[in-house]
Design a protein around this nucleic acid. Structure first.
Lengths: 204, 204
DNA sequence: GAAATAATGTTAAAATATTAACAAAGTGAC
DNA sequence: GTCACTTTGTTAATATTTTAACATTATTTC
């Protein structure tokens, strides 16, 4: 168990399980793969296999210990270690993400936003700072993740600057394909993409 | 060609190709699978296979006709048919999506937002209307897609109301698993989920 | 305590998806 | 016109993922 090679497909489903498990009432000490499968409308065998890849054994007739399962999934997703992140581009989307507090459940804390537009700068809990302070801030606060929510035009520039700051991964919302130096992880988020998929299914 | 069974994996990559192709300058009349693969850092054979599934033939030594390729992908993604959508929950994220105009490129037009909070109501290009008008509005405007950006607490309620309005698909940003009546398509969006994945990779 | 049940875990099979290998077809240079 | 080159499309091999089948194990009931 926890051998080493968790299938990529499994990894992609883990957050789903995690989310569901967390939504359960605390009284629910145990849960069966069948129940999870039912709630998430997936095959029960698949759930069992996924869980087997990341967690210990369940008990026949009983299921898995809910709490242990959550812990194990969190462990594999790295939710236990808190990663500091900064966000660049305090437009509407940027501010929405900045204020969204659901990320901390997944081990990421956005500790500050940056923008070049003076008018959006803000002090307080979630600061929005001038972009020129990006480098020094990142180095001071052990920032490992950068989130890009600027327009497509300046995304590459922001990306480069983040790379210079020693960021390890970039989560890009700008609809532009970024060039990142080797060693830096890039995740492209394209909300329109989800829509396209939905729209396709509807029309069908 | 356009036989009928496009692999699911291919379908998932189509929006990526589309995005890239659209980013090309118009002078670029033809493009090779190799070039696409290079830009997107994927295997060239895969690109060729994907393209073969949705479009006609390319010419050796030349590549594919950019414009035709775009059209074909759009066709398969249903981007050609414009679908009307409404958004419920005009918080920061909701307003960000409402104002984001990238969706229309993927065949979806958010024509109005709804909220129960009187203070955010707004007239103009992208109206924000009181939630009580949801039903009549949807029926009048042939709305087929509903986007939920309310908090987790009221998401199910909103979902039920949308279902009553004859919506065909729901795109849910609330971190809650919704129960939808059969026949309605549900796509769960969980931004935190992407983060979890990233964070996992970093920690590794 | 034996039988019934609900769950697990494993092994094998089937389906999908990716990668590699190679032959064929345009294009351009000489 | 032939040769070299690039790029396609196809066929086969490999890897991965999903599904099915089945034997096993704890719990509950009688």
């Amino acid at each position: 168990m926890t051998g080493h090679s968790i299938p990529k497909a499994t990894l992609g489903r883990l957050p789903q399980y995690l989310e569901y498990l967390r939504s359960l009432p605390v009284e629910r000490r145990t849960i069966s793969a069948t129940a999870i499968a039912g709630a998430l409308s997936m095959g029960d065998v698949q759930v069992r296999k996924d869980l087997a890849a990341v967690s210990g054994a369940g008990k026949p007739k009983v299921g898995y210990q809910t709490e242990k399962l959550i812990e194990d999934i969190e462990g594999h997703l790295g939710c236990d270690k808190l990663t500091n992140a900064v966000l660049v581009g305090a437009g509407k989307l940027g501010r929405a993400l900045l204020d969204y507090d659901g990320f901390k459940d997944f081990g990421v804390r956005i500790i500050a936003g940056f923008d070049c537009n003076e008018t959006v700068l803000k002090k307080g809990a979630k600061e929005i700072l001038p972009i020129k302070d990006l480098g020094s801030y990142c180095r001071q606060h052990d920032v490992r993740l950068g989130i890009i929510t600027v327009g497509g035009g300046s995304a590459q520039e922001v990306c480069d600057r983040l790379a210079e700051c020693g960021i390890e991964a970039i989560w890009n919302f700008a609809p532009v394909r970024l060039r990142v130096p080797g060693g830096i992880l890039l995740k492209q988020e394209n909300l329109a993409l989800s829509l396209a998929y939905l729209n396709n299914q509807i029309s069908k």
